[in-house]
């Protein structure tokens, strides 16, 4: 009798554990949570030099309609070694990922990054246009 109760309890525990673990939490290929948010924009932008100090002159101008980020950097900035930092709308992610210094010296061909919304359905590609302050 007792044995039957114990077996029943173990079976119940196993089933409930399996049920608890089998929840389908949506994550993307980076292991990031996929949410229902559709917001998809850049809210602020920073550029750091090799010394990890900001090289911006004034705030970056972000146009969420034209999908551009215009930023002026101080005279003498080495455009080949700049570290961009994006602040995005909640749950968004950036592609390609920023893994180190980026070469912005080809000003005729601005670097581009795509912002992807929290639900991973909206993609918006921003161009970062860097201009150099004159002496």
């Amino acid at each position: 009798m007792n044995r039957n109760i114990i077996i029943a309890l173990i079976a119940l525990l196993t089933v409930s554990t399996w049920a608890a673990c089998s929840k389908n939490i949506p994550v993307d290929e980076d292991g990031l949570l996929i949410t229902t948010r559709k917001d998809c924009f850049v809210s602020s932008f920073e550029l750091l030099g090799t010394d990890y100090v900001s090289v911006r002159v004034g705030a970056a101008t972000i146009d969420t309609t034209a999908l551009t980020v215009n930023v002026k950097v101080a005279f003498g900035t080495d455009l080949t070694h700049l570290y961009p930092q994006f602040t995005l709308a909640q749950d968004c992610k950036l592609s390609p990922k920023i893994t180190g210094f980026v070469d912005f010296s080809d000003t005729l061909h601005p670097k581009q990054w795509t912002v992807i919304s929290g639900d991973r359905q909206v993609h918006k590609t921003y161009s970062v246009i860097v201009s150099l302050q004159s002496r």
């Binding site: 101080a74 005279f75 003498g76 302050q133 004159s134 002496r135």
Partner: peptide, 22 residues
Amino acid sequence: TYSTSTFGHALVAPAADTTYLP
């Protein structure tokens, strides 16, 4: 010192562009 930019103290190679050796 310039009113239009921050030059301040600098170390520049002699072969650098003259923009940086005003």
